[in-house]
């Protein structure tokens, strides 16, 4: 499985309250959630994001609330993968459970810039920056989690 797209770049501690503000949590509708994704720190994100684009951030991405609406909003906005130096743990498991590809790579989070074209190979964990002609080794998932992902998410894996 691969993902390829244009990068939207953010900093440290991007919390779930800015990914999807709680004032919009009175719905579980994926499209409606996506229409407010990131708006408190990047009002133009929703306007600019295209299907397949990639989100890159630094430390502790997705900290704060356990709202699954956060990875849902990111996925429904068209983002095909989130790369970060580290993820907050609830966001990490939520992303796996709903099938939003994520990958940890400190080097990629430091070197990739907004607007770069990036390709990710999930099997090898290799992230290729097509704009800069560089590649970075991300952390591939352990087998236990690959099993969940390959079965189409947590619920299917439990059947």
């Amino acid at each position: 499985m691969k993902a390829k797209g244009t990068v939207h770049k953010y900093g440290d501690n991007v919390d779930t309250d800015v990914i999807i503000p709680a004032r919009y949590l009175n719905t579980a509708d994926h499209k409606e959630l996506a229409s407010h994704c990131m708006e408190d720190i990047d009002i133009d994100f929703v306007k600019n994001v295209k299907e397949g684009d990639i989100m890159v951030a630094h430390e502790n991405f997705g900290c704060g609330s356990s709202r699954e609406h956060a990875p849902i909003a990111i996925k429904a906005s068209g983002i095909s993968c989130v790369i970060a130096a580290t993820f907050a743990r609830i966001f990490y498991r939520n992303a796996i459970n709903i099938g939003l590809p994520i990958i940890e790579c400190r080097e990629a989070s430091e070197k990739i810039e907004a607007g770069d074209e990036v390709e990710i190979d999930f099997e090898s964990g290799v992230i290729t920056n097509l704009t800069k002609g560089e590649s970075y080794q991300g952390q591939a998932f352990p087998e236990f989690l690959i099993n969940i992902i390959n079965k189409g998410g947590l619920l299917n894996s439990l059947k």
Partner: peptide, 10 residues
Amino acid sequence: TGVGSTDMCA
């Protein structure tokens, strides 16, 4: 520990 809705469902 806190989890998301899919974990809650499972």
